[in-house]
Design a protein around this nucleic acid. Structure first.
Lengths: 259, 259
DNA sequence: AGCCGTGTTCCGATATTCGGAGCTGCATTC
DNA sequence: GAATGCAGCTCCGAATATCGGAACACGGCT
């Protein structure tokens, strides 16, 4: 009970635009007695969660709160928090939802949820894929810093399927479009007969933490693509929020140059 | 009492490297009874401060904690938290300590603490200064993104004193040196007869939130400079930590190119 | 100087937390 | 597959920490 009240006090600081609050202000807003608020604030102050400005006698959030927040980010287990989103995505689209993270020079699928259908797409978990082909790969590549993009496009690009784009100029144009609209698409670039859309989960600095994709057999996937993108972006927006990205989105990426 | 225990539980998550903790684990570490820990965790969970993984029955920090931390950053009042550091700096060096923030195309002093001496330096609060002359200005400029540096050096640079550096090439060399060593110096560049050292307060992304300087009359300041820098960097390191910068420092700035 | 609003302290009453003991459910073991 | 162990959860009377009204300090205002 008391600890829930203490949480309410902390949350009040987060909700209200003003940084400094007085005891009475908090008490009336939360409908608590002044002594109760005072006791709670004293306890929180002992632990550094809030600070007291002795001149004003106003309280504000303390630096320890920041430590906790950063610790949350440190320990962020993207696979764990993405799992329910993948399940939801797969159910909503009736296709396969995947999660990729970077590994070495490329990326690997670390998780997937497949739909309950006879014809479906299933990716291989743990296999290294290059960053120049396929929606998930391009979603990563598009949101990397310019130097890394240059590095990847400097290497010769392997032709994985007949539809793989290996021309650096075309690929750069494609990456710019992906950055702008926030998602990538591919039809058979990495895997012949497969199609997919993918979008990144961005952290507070705009770096891609992971990429989520929805994919399926090419023939039936292409007409579904628009609705898949809709669900996909909703999912990645929620995940990015949990990685510290503000709700309004912010700049597409730190490395995105002007238009 | 209980809310302090609840804080201890949260802090335990931040201190320990592992992200997920069980009830017994927490209870033994904190020397609390299991029911007490369970009650606390339930309350915290109701408020989203911690999350429960139903499969493991392990608890971890929740996304609300991140909201609180980001809210702390939003409301960060650099002037308020810098005030005691300025006082300490001025006392330690027996010179004037100042705080500047960016404003428009330049910067303004927003606070200062002067020493108790007859001959001293006092800056004017609230006056806009350009970013190319003086230690505080150069400390800002050196840590801005490359595009902004280019923009500032593209404009013609005004000669404020006979010692102002107006040659873009020399200035760029100077800025690189400032980035590398983490602090800037000036002798009479902005104000004839004055000398100062300055260092930035960097936020979590490496952007300069404010600049702290120590300054005084040129003749007596120059021999004191080494010790002033020492105290200055200690102060800005503490302030940067409170703005989310990890203790180890990290890269000097996001915009700093290769050596 | 006197007032008002705020933060703080005091107090008995009581509701809440306390922790030992016991229960449940999962997992590992033989 | 039954038994064992462990961890989490629930129950309970006892006790103590929290509760809130009221009174007290402390500044800032008029």
């Amino acid at each position: 009970m008391t600890v829930e009240r203490a949480c309410d006090v902390l949350l009040l600081f987060a909700e209200l635009p003003q940084a400094r609050l007085g005891v009475t202000e908090i008490a009336t807003t939360l409908e608590l007695s002044k002594p109760a608020v005072h006791r709670i604030l004293s306890s929180l102050r002992n632990k550094g969660m809030v600070e007291l400005d002795p001149s004003n006698r106003k309280y504000s959030l303390g630096p320890v709160i920041l430590n906790l927040g950063l610790s949350y980010l440190d320990k962020l287990d993207i696979q764990a928090i993405a799992a329910p989103e993948l399940a939801r995505l797969s159910r909503a689209t009736n296709e396969t939802a995947t999660l990729s993270v970077r590994a070495g020079d490329g990326r690997v699928y670390v998780d997937q949820v497949t739909p309950h259908r006879e014809v479906l797409m299933s990716v291989q978990i743990g296999i290294l894929h290059p960053l120049h082909a396929g929606a998930s790969s391009k979603a990563f590549l598009a949101h990397l810093p310019d130097e890394e993009i240059d590095r990847h496009l400097g290497e010769p690009l392997r032709l994985l399927t007949p539809r793989t784009v290996v021309d650096p100029v075309s690929l750069r144009r494609e990456l710019a479009a992906i950055r702008q609209r926030g998602w990538a698409r591919s039809v058979g670039e990495r895997q012949a007969g497969a199609a997919s859309v993918a979008a990144p989960v961005l952290d507070v600095r705009g770096h891609p933490l992971a990429v989520v994709s929805v994919c399926g057999p090419a023939e039936r996937f292409e007409p579904e693509m628009a609705t898949c993108v809709e669900h996909l972006l909703a999912a990645t927006a929620r995940l990015s929020a949990r990685a510290g990205r503000p709700a309004d989105g912010g700049p597409p990426t730190v490395a995105a140059g002007g238009p």
